[in-house]
Amino acid sequence: MSAKHAKPNFSQSQVSEVLKRLFRVTASEIRSLPSYDDQNFHVVPVDGGEYVLKIMNAEDSKNPALIEVQTHAMSFLYQNGLPAQTAMPTASGQLMSLEEIDCGYGCQKYLVRLLTYLPGTTISKVPLTPQLLYETGKTAARMDLILQEMEHPQLSVLQRENFKWSLSNFTMLEAFLSVLDGDPLQEVVKSVIHQYKSSVVPKRSGFRKCINHGDFNDLNVLVQPDESDGYKISGILDFGDMNSGYYIHELAIAIMYMMTEHPNPIEVENAEYLMISSKRGIFILRQLWELRKEQVEKVWFESAAQFSDRK
Rank of each mutant, 00 (worst) to 15 (best):
E269K: 02
W165K: 09
S178Y: 05
D215P: 04
Y51L: 07
I266P: 00
I123F: 03
E100R: 15
L237T: 08
G120V: 11
E297G: 01
Q85W: 01
N264R: 11
G81D: 13
T26A: 11
F216E: 02
P8R: 04
D183M: 09
E294M: 09
V179G: 00
P45T: 11
I248A: 14
V296I: 13
L158P: 09
H249I: 10
N212G: 06
D37E: 14
D60R: 07
C107E: 10
F307R: 07
G206V: 11
G240R: 01
G81A: 07
H262M: 06
Q159F: 10
G281S: 12
A73G: 05
K164E: 03
I101L: 15
H194Q: 14
E294R: 12
L114G: 03
R113W: 02
Q108Y: 02
H249A: 14
T121A: 10
K203R: 14
F301H: 12
E250Q: 14
T86P: 04
F176S: 07
F301A: 13
D60P: 06
F163L: 08
D144F: 02
V223C: 05
E29W: 09
T121D: 12
T136R: 01
E269T: 12
V189M: 07
F10K: 01
I253N: 06
D102P: 14
Q154R: 13
E17D: 15
Q159R: 15
M143P: 02
S303A: 03
S198K: 08
S198Y: 01
P64M: 07
F170Q: 00
Q295P: 01
E290M: 03
S13N: 13
I67R: 00
A73H: 07
Y247H: 15
L66P: 02
S278M: 11
Q79Y: 05
Q131H: 06
P265G: 01
Q186W: 03
G214I: 04
L177C: 04
H262V: 07
E149M: 04
K125C: 03
Q295F: 03
N40M: 10
I123Q: 05
L77G: 01
S124N: 09
F41M: 07
M259C: 13
V179R: 11
V69C: 10
N270L: 10
S178D: 14
E227D: 14
G281E: 09
